[in-house]
Design a protein around this nucleic acid. Structure first.
Length: 536
DNA sequence: ATCGGCTCGCGCAA
DNA sequence: TGCGCGAAGCCGAT
């Protein structure tokens, strides 16, 4: 019953161009189980057109630093390779997506544009800008939610209990194995006047701009690729061995033109000194060129990419799923899946995860507990951000909580810490400091403790507004999967009672649910957690 | 250890 | 209009 069509939302109508179908990859950074890509491919096959994927790398994104950008780019590098094997070239664009995506679409005279769904404000403004600038049909496919956000509900849900029945009703339609991506039958062409090239068996009219070299001393192997030494064209010349060849592409410095020039399929950037838009991306160069906060470094407990994501999913199902309902709330037991960075960057399909969990041999209650988190609560976050544009402001809180925040503005605070003190884990509370240290060092806080972390920021800030801003800032900068609707919904829950209910009133919190140190002591070995966190 | 009360409002049954 | 119940709790009584 459910087809890819059901995940589609028409961003704009338009007149199809004569060129290829273009898939604009945004949140769904994977080749497998990607409905946007699958939809783009089915349209391309239907129209007998080539298919290409583009990703626009921005210079800054909601406080993300090297930790997050590196995880993303290393994942994209793997995805580029997977797509290449499917005869789908991958282009890394740089700059403002609102400008670069339309420019690319025009350049290759795209038939149509297919993009991802992302409920956050900035990506939505990009989508609007692109929709205004292109003339071709532009469709959005929600491949981040098992039940597409726009279909699950047409309004902001009040709580999980109002959302759950809607999801469960639609789940049988959407919890189905996705089709597999096929090797694309039509090659990417050289476009008509602006020199953009890709793997192709057809000669390009702009071959003369494509410079390919053989290695020094090498006799006949075509040597292509990014060079470390600058040359007029070299850095723009990124090559492949011939399609179908089993030769490994070899790169090396040389000044001699290659006799295998016909195997070198390149482009030059549009007469500018911009970093070239390449079929084969120089990922290290892209990473090095980023001007983002590099003081927040990469983490070593999780490897980026589709392959690592699938491996972690398998390992979780095999080793942890059965104990998930009990172990997930004990920060000492590492009982959670650790999949959320993969889900955040789209390196893992939530549908894939749900199907593998459902088909596993774990106890029914364990599967249900995990699927509740993966589907109902995760997708409720997208619902919150999409239908509540002020998802990161007190104005986005429910009515009772907004009044609440106003009414307790002048309550005396026993402790007040500045954002800097909080960031430095310099509070009187050793458990909170340990949680903050985990965030800084590992880029994540165990689930239960994350709630405590947020609640205390509310308690120790001078206002709810300040608490919300601090929690979001710390989450966006340090959390590996920060800047995610789950993060905004989670913080709004802790600070603003979003998706929660009112509780007995008390100072500072008012009717927002309170949590304390004793509650943690009842649930897990606090000292053991602090010891482990501080040792690392 | 377990339980009820706290407190608001959504959505469904009637 | 009435009524049950909810994103993971706290607290005091038993």
């Amino acid at each position: 019953m459910a087809s890819i069509e059901q995940r589609k939302w028409e961003v704009r109508e338009g007149e199809p161009g004569p060129g290829p179908v273009v898939y604009w990859m945004q949140r769904e950074q994977r080749a497998a189980d990607n409905f946007g890509l699958l939809y783009a491919q089915s349209r391309a096959r239907e129209l007998k057109r080539p298919l290409g994927a583009i990703f626009c790398l921005v210079d800054s994104f909601l406080g993300a630093g090297m930790r997050q950008f590196a995880f993303m780019l290393r994942g994209l590098e793997e995805t580029e390779e997977k797509l290449r094997r499917k005869n789908i070239p991958f282009f890394l664009l740089r700059g403002d997506p609102g400008k670069e995506i339309p420019r690319f679409v025009k350049k290759c005279q795209a038939a149509l544009l297919v993009g991802d769904f992302n409920p956050l404000r900035l990506p939505l403004t990009w989508q609007k800008k692109v929709a205004r600038a292109v003339t071709v049909p532009f469709d959005e496919i929600d491949s981040h939610n098992i039940v597409p956000c726009r279909i699950a509900s047409d309004k902001q849900e009040y709580a999980a209990y109002t959302f759950r029945p809607k999801i469960h009703k639609l789940l049988p339609d959407f919890l189905k194995k996705p089709p597999t991506l096929k090797k694309h039958p039509i090659n990417w062409p050289g476009s008509t006047d602006i020199p953009v090239y890709g793997p192709s068996s057809r000669p390009s009219p702009h071959r003369q701009e494509c410079l390919c070299y053989t290695a020094d001393g090498s006799t006949d192997i075509p040597v292509c690729g990014p060079s470390s030494r600058p040359s007029p064209h070299r850095q723009e010349c990124l090559c492949y061995t011939a399609e179908g060849s089993t030769d490994i592409p070899v790169c090396g410095p040389s000044s001699r033109p290659s006799p295998h020039r016909q195997e070198c399929l390149c482009y030059t950037a549009e007469g500018s000194t911009d970093i070239p838009v390449c079929v084969s991306v120089d990922w290290e160069k892209a990473l090095a060129s980023l001007k983002v906060d590099s003081s927040i470094g990469e983490v070593d407990w999780i490897k980026p990419g589709e392959k690592a994501a699938r491996a972690r999913l398998k390992k979780f199902i095999k080793e942890k799923l059965a104990r998930y309902p009990e172990d997930r709330n004990d920060p000492n037991l590492d009982g959670q899946s650790g999949l959320s960075p993969y889900l955040h960057f789209g390196q893992l399909s939530p549908l894939r995860a749900a199907l593998e969990v459902r088909n596993s041999s774990a106890p029914k209650e364990a599967k249900e507990a995990f699927l509740e988190e993966l589907i109902v609560r995760r997708e409720l976050s997208d619902n919150f951000c999409f239908y509540q544009p002020k998802y990161d402001r007190v104005e986005g809180f429910p009515e009772w909580a907004k009044k609440n925040a106003a009414g307790h503005r002048s309550d005396r605070r026993e402790y007040i810490y500045t954002p800097k003190q909080l960031e430095a884990a310099g509070t009187h509370d050793d458990l909170w400091n340990a949680a903050q240290t985990e965030l800084v060092v590992r880029g994540t806080i165990p689930g239960y403790l994350r709630m405590y972390w947020g609640k205390k920021i509310l308690e120790w800030s001078e206002s709810a507004e300040q608490a919300l801003a601090t929690a979001i800032d710390l989450n966006d900068r340090y959390q590996l999967d920060g800047r995610d609707s789950n993060g905004y919904a989670g913080v709004a829950w802790a600070v603003g009672g979003v998706h929660d209910r009112p509780w007995p009133s008390r100072p500072v919190f008012g009717k927002v649910r309170y949590m304390n140190y004793n509650g943690c002591r009842r649930k897990f070995n606090v000292k053991a957690f602090i010891f482990r966190a501080m040792k690392k």
